[in-house]
Design a protein around this nucleic acid. Structure first.
Lengths: 126, 126
DNA sequence: AACCGATATGTTTATATTTGCATAATAGCT
DNA sequence: AGCTATTATGCAAATATAAACATATCGGTT
């Protein structure tokens, strides 16, 4: 959301981001990785998900691995070989994680609407 | 906030960030720059603020300039020369901005508490 | 007019992050 | 057994971000 028409903040937007972090302050997964895992869920393949999102397979694979290592459990069951070369499906934990994240985003969006409105009212006070 | 004791998410935290962005998708200012401007307000000097925060003067100065250019108006009135070499005070706009940001953070913290609780309940469902 | 300490800014060095390249391993199918 | 599409991974190259270095400018005080 942007500030009101004519104000100094007319083309300024308030944005936010949510992510998981471990006790060392390292990011585990945020927006991008959630989107990736969601696409793996929908497409059944790491490669397909990477192509869809527009990142390299190398990066997508590295991202999933990194998140899994930091969490200490698998998010995706990966299989290589076979008729179609292989495939990937979410583990129950991975599935629950992306579902919870989607709900979280909806609730964040609801909260942020009021907060944003108030913020722009405040900065535009004469 | 972390997940409940004993759960897979025991030492995992949900974190968030808010920032201002322009229509080109460029970040204008977030956490770090708000903190910097707040310190300039409290200490009356860019240099003192940079030292306090632990970044170089060069970087602090660049950060303020960048934000001001993207916003199109000044946040800090800077004066050089004089008895103490110079000083910096916030413009009315800068002052309103950090005040609004502080309120925003408080409200975000309140909202996120419930959202986080719900999130960890969800991912830990059996 | 000389001094001082903070602002102002270009340039260079270092570091971190991302992207890309190349190549191996795998397993159902024909 | 060979083909195929995907997973798996090391390593080099390219970018982006941040830190460090060097210098100039300015104006109240002395």
């Amino acid at each position: 959301m942007a500030g009101p028409k004519g104000s100094k903040y007319y083309d300024v937007f308030l944005k936010f981001k949510v992510w998981l972090e471990n006790t060392d302050g390292e990011g585990i997964l945020g927006d991008g990785k959630f989107e990736l895992i969601d696409q793996i869920d929908q497409l059944g393949s790491l490669k397909a998900a990477a192509d869809k999102i527009g990142i390299s397979y190398r990066k997508a694979w590295g991202n999933v691995k990194d998140a899994e290592e930091k969490l200490g459990f698998l998010l995706v069951d990966k299989h290589r070989g076979g008729q179609h070369g292989g495939n990937s499906v979410l583990t129950p934990e991975g599935k629950k994680l992306i579902e919870a994240y989607k709900e979280l985003l909806v609730e964040f969006d609801e909260s942020i609407y009021q907060i944003t409105k108030k913020f722009f009212n405040k900065v535009n006070e004469k």
